[in-house]
Design a protein around this nucleic acid. Sequence first.
DNA 1: TATGAATGAGCGTTCATTCAT
DNA 2: AATGAATGAACGCTCATTCAT
Lengths: 209, 209, 209, 209
Amino acid sequence: MDARTPSALKPRKRPRQARARVTVDAIFEATIQLLLKDGPHRLTTTRVAERAGVSVGTMYQYFPNKQALVYALNERYLEVLAEKIESTCRAQHGAPIGQMVEALVDTYWRAKTERADVTRALYRSVAEMDNQTLVDDFAARVNAATTAMLASASDTTLDDLEATNLTLVTVIFGTVRNAFERTLPAAQAEALRGQLVTMCRAYLDAVTA
Amino acid sequence: MDARTPSALKPRKRPRQARARVTVDAIFEATIQLLLKDGPHRLTTTRVAERAGVSVGTMYQYFPNKQALVYALNERYLEVLAEKIESTCRAQHGAPIGQMVEALVDTYWRAKTERADVTRALYRSVAEMDNQTLVDDFAARVNAATTAMLASASDTTLDDLEATNLTLVTVIFGTVRNAFERTLPAAQAEALRGQLVTMCRAYLDAVTA
Amino acid sequence: MDARTPSALKPRKRPRQARARVTVDAIFEATIQLLLKDGPHRLTTTRVAERAGVSVGTMYQYFPNKQALVYALNERYLEVLAEKIESTCRAQHGAPIGQMVEALVDTYWRAKTERADVTRALYRSVAEMDNQTLVDDFAARVNAATTAMLASASDTTLDDLEATNLTLVTVIFGTVRNAFERTLPAAQAEALRGQLVTMCRAYLDAVTA
Amino acid sequence: MDARTPSALKPRKRPRQARARVTVDAIFEATIQLLLKDGPHRLTTTRVAERAGVSVGTMYQYFPNKQALVYALNERYLEVLAEKIESTCRAQHGAPIGQMVEALVDTYWRAKTERADVTRALYRSVAEMDNQTLVDDFAARVNAATTAMLASASDTTLDDLEATNLTLVTVIFGTVRNAFERTLPAAQAEALRGQLVTMCRAYLDAVTA
DNA sequence: TATGAATGAGCGTTCATTCAT
DNA sequence: AATGAATGAACGCTCATTCAT
């Protein structure tokens, strides 16, 4: 929950107590399940509350409105994802650049694949409401991390760090999303991931020469 | 309108007269504008009709329900897009492979950029309703065209045509989509396009060696 | 079309020409079929016109609105029915009273049974719109005919002609309607008709004694 | 609410609290009034809710759709009516048969007359939706009660119990309905009831002889 | 504090009716 | 005279949100 979160979407209270955290988790889980089962346009506050085992009233104590719920769900998801990426970037600090992109692709791909259902559910929910802020914040954060990582490469210096970074990030994230929407068989998906690494490495060779 | 279109989504009548075509176009245009302005969940039949300057009743003479409208809009768009890609693929038949991917990226990028608003509106609308059929059909069609093109490359033979093709298509389409969602400044977008070509060429060099 | 028909329900033009009569018949027939197939609340002007093979516009030249159509249909049906009853009453003039009621029951039952589907369709349609006038007029007309018939009985004089007549008519018409709504098997229906005659005869014996 | 009620028509929740019962009663009452004032085709959910002094939403908490409302109204009415008839049949067990039919006519007539407006409203509403199940169930229930009663007559044994029973029930119910649709003046209605008893008695004498 | 009954604006859709052609 | 595209009020129904208990 950074300072940029629009106030209308801010959770009403932070889950300080253990009980509150359990409740919020149940609500999030219920939301994901319903998103998956029925799609975003069938997601209703009543159903979420019911499945989460709380009353609507209680739900409105944690989230001021429906959009805030979806917003918070995505926020939490992107927070975890950003942390994973930042962690990878830190771990790869000073490594050879080829290894860096491989690690980046792996991290991102694995994160998305771990709970593929959640990934798909959230991709669908983001478009629904206006969660652009969230996406932009995530992009900025990832950008900072990957830029710092690439700048520290032990084996090369990039002429145009900004452009190369933007390219890599856009290509990797875009490709992964597209791969998800095609619902490829596991073998093909795995092969694709390998090809993506190959491609990124080849690209870096080309712009580094 | 291919035979696979679910019957519930089939337009009720085709616009035979000039006047009818104008009406249908106005409805499509209104839909795009509303999709852009308010997002898919604010798209209502009343608002579409109002903005198109027709009555709801008239709208329902052309589309049996709201979903059919969005479906038809995407269908029309993807039809044009598929034709452009097929045309490019035919034109590049027998060309050197590097030139092929450059042409493919250019065609796709230009098509998406020509009316960026439409592109963005439709990206948002696809997730909403069940337009998976549409997307799958489009993918299959494009796949056939690009596979045939790549197979005819004058300067090389690909070891694993299928895999390479899938990779290229997924990367290009995914990257373009992601680039659009970031709403980059024109210069950066242009640079990105160049980098994408570089990357694809480098990849082909790598897998062809 | 007697003078009591509310003006809003009056057909716009009488079918003078042969062609017009054919059209009106087609419209009536279409109405009956739709009434049977889908029930009164699915009866729409568009569907009637379509099934009758004319345009809605043409239909509105014969009937100023939907209610007028249903009204006219019932009117025509009741007209024919009233004529049959009047004819029977005239034929039974001066006959023994027991034979009179038997003839009355037979005529009414046969008329309703001839096209049982139409009977049922119309029973359902009458309740829908306000066709009370029609029903009242029919009742008055039948009343006059049966009263005259009963008064002429060769074998008896009724003490309270009015009351006996009302009783017979109400019982016969009510019983037939109820029998229709129960959709009895043919044999049971036939038996019931016989019992009804027996009952009416027994009643007349009782009030004549 | 017997097990045969189609699930789509089942009330959503039973009125447990006193307040809820008041609400449901108000909705029923409003439905009756509107049915009487405007007829079934003018009965709209909005108008019912408005007249009942509740919101549409509240109405939909008790009834899943409009048809279910009309269904429940008829169900409640027929339930009470069936109980009255069964009660009469039990009370007349072993009595002389003439007294039996008199009691049956009296009970039925009084029940219908008590709230003539309700009677008329429901007669009009039954045809509208598919309440045939309801009517059939009612018929079967009444049939069992009257058959048992007639079989126990102290002064006679019927040759064809089934046929006689069907005749009596069809005649009585049909006559009452028809009498209601004619909206007779009180005196005439009362006389008619007497005549109906006379007729039934005479019929029984005839088939018993 | 937690509940869930109540609200009512607003949705997608239908269809009787009109009128330009 | 005949057509049928266009109209838009009105329908049945949903669901985010509130608030008395």
